[in-house]
Design a protein around this nucleic acid. Sequence first.
DNA 1: CGCAATGAGTTAGAACCTATAACGGAAGCA
DNA 2: TGCTTCCGTTATAGGTTCTAACTCATTGCG
Lengths: 216, 216
Amino acid sequence: MVESDAGTPRERYRAQVQEEIKAHAWGQIRSAGASALSLSAIAKRMGLSGPALYRYFAGRDELITALVRDAYRSLADAVRLQAEAGADLPALARVLRGWALADPQRYFLVYGTPVPGYEAPEDTTAIAAEIMAVLLDAGAAAAPVASAPSALEVHLAEHRAWDGGHPAPPSALRLALAFWTRLTGVLSLELAGHFAGMGFDPEQLYEAEVRALTGR
Amino acid sequence: MVESDAGTPRERYRAQVQEEIKAHAWGQIRSAGASALSLSAIAKRMGLSGPALYRYFAGRDELITALVRDAYRSLADAVRLQAEAGADLPALARVLRGWALADPQRYFLVYGTPVPGYEAPEDTTAIAAEIMAVLLDAGAAAAPVASAPSALEVHLAEHRAWDGGHPAPPSALRLALAFWTRLTGVLSLELAGHFAGMGFDPEQLYEAEVRALTGR
DNA sequence: CGCAATGAGTTAGAACCTATAACGGAAGCA
DNA sequence: TGCTTCCGTTATAGGTTCTAACTCATTGCG
């Protein structure tokens, strides 16, 4: 993806090999899921012998962590890019769905089953905050004019440690949150195959949820 | 869970050992996730030697499939039990959340990351239909009186292969579907830890979604 | 330019894992 | 009693992650 021109030749080579390892890892994950990711298999396909990869990633977990970070990063970039182009909430919703459908396993690396012990590294929480900031921007632009705040809006107004200093009104906090939970709800079920055989078109459900969020 | 008194002594013993294996499997899954499930480790803790377990489950996949089926079954039972006691949608929502919080990894075995190749066995889709039927019952009871049907409701009315012959109106189809997607949306994010550090109480968000579904 | 330091890649091997094969023996049953 | 069924064993093959110890090319400094 990113041609890293900086640094010494060795650093450039190292970064290039790391990218190649991740590319093969994505191939495996796309076809058989993250649990089937095998360092040995990657090494074999790269013409290397197993332990060579440990020069580039301390272990399987560190490779997966890097993949999670890249997945998160690509989502944040996609969303931020559209937002900077002036996209409103419905447009952002379509970006989210497009990103998810383009690679379901990448989506699940971000929003799928967590490993009980696993603690997300600092930078991924920063990326999550970045996504939330975009949603808050768009939510503040779309939030309805003040009526009597709901019980949830009162609660959110009192617990907005996550807003990153964003001056969004309580209704925007609630809107951004609902946007996030409702759309990932549809996407998670759709991508996990829970709609299979039900006959309806998931996209229509998704779009209806978007309309419901933005006031019909 | 179920004391199986039926069958020959051998069949009873076999069923009992199978249950014991699954109990140990749940222990492992609870503490380290499904990917960490190890037949060898289970055998060791049962005082058996590895291959003995293959008399009871053809392999790791078959054991996991059995666990998924049990998890699905326990959710369907919990939901149906409440529905038969006359529970409305908000009460069913609380059952769902209680079931999910009681064992997050069990929830993720049903609604978490799917394995790309994996095809759900016939009986789990039957259980899914059973859950859907309960939601349709409750949805039909709570659905608003007919107004102009939305675009989604028209679409659902034309693609209701999944309703199992339930005579629910389009608005009830839409309500049951939204109930399912919105609440699993909140639960999946909450249980995966995506709300960690945000400060607000996930239950208040959940209850607000329930209120929004049932008309404030 | 030359030489030491750095680091990439190798093989060997330990400790796991799933899964199969072949065997011994106990339990059920006629 | 004797036969059949099936449980549990050990042995084994082949897979995985990961560490250790070694070779050797490349880099960069004096």
